[in-house]
Design a protein around this nucleic acid. Structure first.
Lengths: 202, 202
DNA sequence: GAGTTAATTGAACAATTGTTTAATTCTAGC
DNA sequence: GCTAGAATTAAACAATTGTTCAATTAACTC
């Protein structure tokens, strides 16, 4: 046998991405075999190599894609305003964006260690750029006296950890809606940075 | 060849634990082979099976050991007091305990998915018990009017995520000392729960 | 409808995996 | 100094791993 009826490359590569994303998120990169990804796509293992040179390239492709889409999405919706409002915007954006893409979020911070040297460095750069966004807001808010923070670096990292921690417990069918979780998180972050007026940050 | 000079079982099993802990933390359970653990211990792969029936049992042994030691350590140092002080105590304890054992902390929340069904359930129970500690403090503080919290569950989970996130960025040779990080974290958590008097929680 | 290209199979590769077992050497107790 | 048991090696097992490639079939072009 060979080419199967109705198969097109663009379709197959997309189904491969989806299968790999699901499996990497659920089992972890190292525990997933090329045959498992192929089986889930309804294809033989050899076919994968028409689209990705190695297993590592699948992971890297997923992570780059996620980070680029994330950065683009933020750029498209960010607005100029005070540090308080911009930080609240960022929290809302981050929560909303990731809760709709839990698998991407999960692998993008769980599978960093599965990346080879060069790939790791590139993804790390992406992350640094993204994490610089809240950091700058906090520093700006401090400079203008709108925030009261003991240590900008630790506070930023704590906020990022708190945001990323969402993946470990959020369930779509949970008690709270996405909007309610956003509200709670915005309130928490607002307190963490010691924003002057606790309410009214829209 | 066979038994090597100066070898005792108690010593070997401890070195095996240490090797497995280091490798699991660095590479991930699935990416570590029995031969890699053996090599790091200075022993052949077959020797491991005198102490652990399977690879899975090594991971489980490490996780159970960590969770039990963690719970014991907290019980030994906890004291009766107000919710504010007890929560600050807990944060300080958690930060200090884990920053001295980054590898245990790392695998105990990164490798949960590598556990087989039954083992996973047992470790999850341990975790639930431990995470109930801050949750109860928060609920108690709310009931007494000492805390002002929008949602107890989400706030608890956010605090736990923030605490666990330490592993992803803490470095022993970093800018801040363990004590300074503790102080910042206690302040952050205190704000998150809306503790009435922000300072003076010792 | 013939010829070209795109897409896939299926078998094969060597390497590595977790685990078992018989043989061997060391240590401890008498 | 002998012996029993503890500790380990080294070889072997079948299964699985990532990857390659010639053969084969489907879709597209003219």
């Amino acid at each position: 046998m060979a080419r199967t009826a109705g198969s097109t490359g663009a379709d197959t590569v997309e189904r491969l991405r989806e299968a790999a994303l699901e499996l990497f998120a659920r089992e972890g990169y190292a525990a997933v075999s090329m045959r498992a990804i192929a089986a889930r796509t309804g294809v033989q293992a050899g076919a994968i190599y028409n689209y990705f040179p190695t297993k590592q390239d699948i992971l890297f492709d997923l992570l780059v894609g996620h980070m680029e889409a994330l950065a683009t999405a933020w750029r498209e919706m960010e607005r100029l305003s005070t540090a308080e409002i911009r930080l609240a915007d960022f929290v809302r954006f981050h929560v909303r964006y990731h809760l709709v893409r839990p698998r991407e979020m999960f692998i993008s911070y769980m599978e960093l260690r599965s990346l080879e040297e060069d790939n790791f460095r590139r993804i790390r750069e992406f992350r640094r750029g993204y994490e610089a966004i809240p950091r700058q807001m906090i520093e700006q808010g401090m400079a203008k006296g709108a925030f009261d923070v003991l240590d900008a670096e630790v506070t930023t990292r704590a906020i990022i950890a708190l945001l990323n921690g969402l993946t470990t417990w959020y369930r779509e069918d949970g008690r709270l809606s996405l909007g309610e979780i956003e509200t709670v998180y915005i309130g928490l972050v607002s307190r963490m940075v010691g924003a002057r007026e606790e309410e009214g940050n829209v």
